[in-house]
Simulated assay, not measured.
Amino acid sequence: MQPQRAELYFQQGSSDKVYHLQLEGGQDQWSVQAQWGRRGSALQSDVKVSGTSYEQAKRVYDRILREKTGKGYQIAQARANGNEAIAVGLPATKEQSGHTPELLTPIEEPEALLLAQHAAWWFQQKVDGRRLAVQKSERKYSGINKLGQIIPIDARLAESLDRVQAQGFLADGEITDSRFYIWDLLSVNDTDLRIQPYEIRYVHLTKHFPGVSDVLRVCETAMTTKAKRDFVKKMHDANAEGFVCKNRNAAYAGGRAGQHFKCKFVATASFIVGPKPEGRRRPPLHRRVSLGRQLASFHGHRRSARPISARSRSWKCVTSTVTPDPKENSSRLNTSVKCAMTLPSPIAASAS
């Protein structure tokens, strides 16, 4: 648990904006703060979350960072406890790599736990980071994002990858601010492993990557029924984002092939609830948002928002702020509502 901060910027045409983000605190009192605006002008500020656990604050920090970089912001500087965090750049020209990342299919936890009984399925942690594949060719490294676009990678990550005893490789995983978690090895030393079942690719992965560097981590994998159930409980206790179900017999397939699954313990979303604009019959303060397979409706008025339960799932309003809309007169207000959908654990329920 350590403080973090990031400085981002966005430049396009006449637009020149900055965005500063900080994760600060100690013990169980952590907060995330942000400042933004045009470069050189007085910045607006907001407390995104405060007085919460490190795990919750870190999720908010990482989510905001992903949202901003996804909108075109670039990281000018990022630090973790005084040390610069590993940075992954945006695609300079949106050049396609020729590699199509394999995407996970979301499922509910009860469905995922049924797979724990079958030897064909392995469980891994769902890392809360950014998708990244790294290719080494002719002693040079290039990153590949989840869209298959080529992106630059941090020099310190490349330095750690230099310790891998292989002339070339294509490794797939997820990167956080301090580590690259690797779960698949698709090629090594000019040998294409994608036609091999996942269990064979995983053997090659553990052969080439474990213990190479603290920056590189092979994803922990639970293989037996007991290990998988214990693993899920461990992820719950650690307040992890969720877990992944891998079919050990599946060859690699790009896109959302439906052969590997992800299960998230908590789904989060942000909603903007505002007043009814003139000339509209249906007010925009009625939002309908899909999370997984559930639908939830949110109703509100000028100064509050009331979450309505989504079927059997419970929705909890975490924070809400009311700020004047600068584009409207002072009597019109926008309400920002941040909510979380908690998914009860069948394991936790059976253990109690």
Rank of each mutant, 00 (worst) to 15 (best):
P197C: 09
K262L: 12
K246A: 14
K207H: 12
T176C: 12
V188H: 02
A227C: 04
F243N: 05
L185H: 02
C245I: 05
V203I: 10
R229D: 06
F271G: 07
T225G: 14
T221F: 10
D214R: 08
V266T: 03
S213H: 13
S270M: 04
V273N: 06
G274N: 00
P197W: 04
G242F: 10
I272A: 03
F180W: 12
I272C: 04
V218I: 03
I175P: 00
L185D: 00
V215R: 15
T221M: 14
D230P: 00
A227P: 00
A250L: 09
R281D: 13
R229H: 07
G258D: 12
A250Y: 10
Y202A: 13
F180I: 04
K276N: 09
I182E: 01
R217K: 14
H208C: 03
L185Q: 02
N249I: 02
Y181I: 04
M223S: 15
E241R: 00
R194N: 06
L185W: 00
K228T: 03
I200P: 01
A269G: 11
N247L: 13
G254E: 03
Q259M: 04
A257N: 13
D214V: 05
V232R: 00
K234F: 02
K233F: 08
L185P: 01
G254Q: 03
C219N: 14
L216W: 12
V203D: 14
D192W: 03
H208M: 10
A222L: 01
V212Q: 15
R280N: 07
G242I: 08
V212D: 15
P275S: 04
S187K: 08
D184T: 05
V273Q: 03
K234H: 09
M235T: 09
R248D: 03
Q259L: 08
R248Q: 05
E241L: 01
L216H: 14
A269Q: 08
A253M: 10
N239A: 05
D192V: 00
R229E: 09
S213D: 15
F231Y: 13
A253P: 11
F271K: 02
K228D: 08
P275H: 03
I195H: 14
G173F: 09
E278C: 09
Y198Q: 03
E278V: 13
P275F: 01
L185N: 02
V215M: 15
G173P: 02
A171E: 04
D214Q: 11
E278W: 15
A267Q: 08
R281F: 06
D230I: 10
